[in-house]
Amino acid sequence: MPEPGLEIDGISKRYGAVVALEKMTFDVRPGELFGFVGSNGAGKTTTMRIALGVLSADAGQVRYAGEPITHETRRQIGYMPEERGLYPKMKVGEQLTYLARLHGMPAAAAKASSERWTERLGVAARRDDEVQKLSLGNQQRVQLAAALVHEPRILVLDEPFSGLDPVAVDVMSDVLKEKAAEGVPVVFSSHQLDLVERLCDRIGIVRSGRMEASGTVAELRAGGTTRLLVDAPEAPENWAAGLSGVTVIGRRGAVTELELADGADDQAVLRAALATGPVREFARKLPSLTELFRSVVSEHQEAAA
């Protein structure tokens, strides 16, 4: 029997002449945090809405544990939309209990779960307040509680960290890691790439409705451009000029940052640096997720041009 993971398999969606998704494919494994990143309009929200059944796909399939998603499966998904969907004039505790009941929980269990999650997310003191009277940050915490209150088997979260202060980010991060540790597949989108890089087991970079790159941070970094940091205190300003396949990115003090083309000889760079005098550091610089993301976007823009 397949493991209970979430699979997005070849999903396509068009709106007239506009292609929203084109064969979008990725999977979220049990107990995994999957970061879904891309520019505005790249197709992240559309993908999530199709997984939830809010939208229908023109082609492709969404599966859980190897089987197509059904209405019953969707009741087991915890969803946090980017456009927050709480009832503004309903009290926090009553609303969470009501939402848990809608997902099939008995009344007593629903109330207990509502109390447990408001406590865990730091809004227990606001249970009797209307949602509209909460700060935006606390509304965000309640929205996460709404995604968790029915003890879902899958979590799909659209920009869950938007507008949160650092303490709330830490709380939400801990909750997501706890759910993943329980075996729940968790997928979330975010523009906070440093947070995605720190938190996620795997990451998918989406562009113009297509998955352009996916893997662990280490895998994505290994596939990026090769950069070197060379600390040569006696080297002249232009010591690396003219080296085959080498581009000088910049220099700070005695440290020169270089980018190597495919096939460029890093040992030739080292020999050139040593020819100027002592070398205190010669190390590869791995790109950050932000740099990888910019590279993917710029490649697309260059191709379009």
Rank of each mutant, 00 (worst) to 15 (best):
P4R: 02
E7Q: 13
I8H: 01
K13V: 14
G16A: 12
A17I: 13
A17H: 14
K23Y: 03
F26Q: 11
R29A: 14
P30H: 06
G31L: 08
G31N: 08
E32W: 05
L33T: 02
S39L: 15
N40E: 12
T45G: 03
R49C: 00
R49T: 00
A51V: 03
G53P: 01
G53H: 00
A57P: 03
D58L: 06
A59K: 05
Q61A: 14
Y64W: 15
G66L: 07
E67D: 08
I69Y: 02
G78P: 05
G78C: 05
G78H: 04
P81Y: 01
E83K: 12
G85F: 04
Y87R: 04
P88N: 07
K89F: 14
K89S: 13
V92S: 05
V92P: 03
G93S: 11
E94T: 15
Y98E: 09
A100C: 09
A100L: 05
G104Q: 02
M105R: 08
M105V: 04
A107S: 13
A109I: 01
A109C: 03
A112N: 08
S113R: 06
R116V: 00
A124P: 01
A125R: 12
R127C: 10
V131L: 07
Q139N: 11
R141E: 10
Q143L: 12
A145K: 08
A146T: 09
A146S: 14
A147I: 03
L148E: 01
V149L: 01
H150Q: 03
P152T: 03
L155N: 00
V156P: 00
L157C: 03
E159T: 11
P160T: 12
S162Y: 09
L164I: 13
V167D: 12
A168H: 07
A168M: 15
V169N: 05
M172L: 15
L176V: 07
E178N: 01
A180Q: 01
A181R: 10
E182M: 02
P185D: 00
P185S: 02
V186C: 00
S189C: 12
S189M: 02
S190M: 02
L193Y: 00
D194H: 08
E197V: 05
R198T: 11
D201A: 13
D201S: 12
R202I: 14
I205A: 11
S208R: 12
G209A: 10
G209S: 09
T216K: 08
L220Q: 06
A222T: 10
L228S: 07
V230R: 07
P233V: 15
A235Q: 09
W239S: 13
A240S: 13
G242I: 12
V246I: 15
T247V: 15
V248H: 02
I249E: 13
I249W: 02
A254E: 04
V255C: 05
E257G: 04
A261L: 09
D262S: 13
D262W: 03
G263S: 04
G263Q: 05
A264C: 06
Q267F: 11
Q267L: 15
V269I: 13
A273K: 11
A275T: 14
T276M: 13
G277P: 11
R284L: 08
P287N: 03
E291S: 07
F293P: 01
F293G: 05
V296C: 02
E299H: 10
E302H: 09
A304H: 09
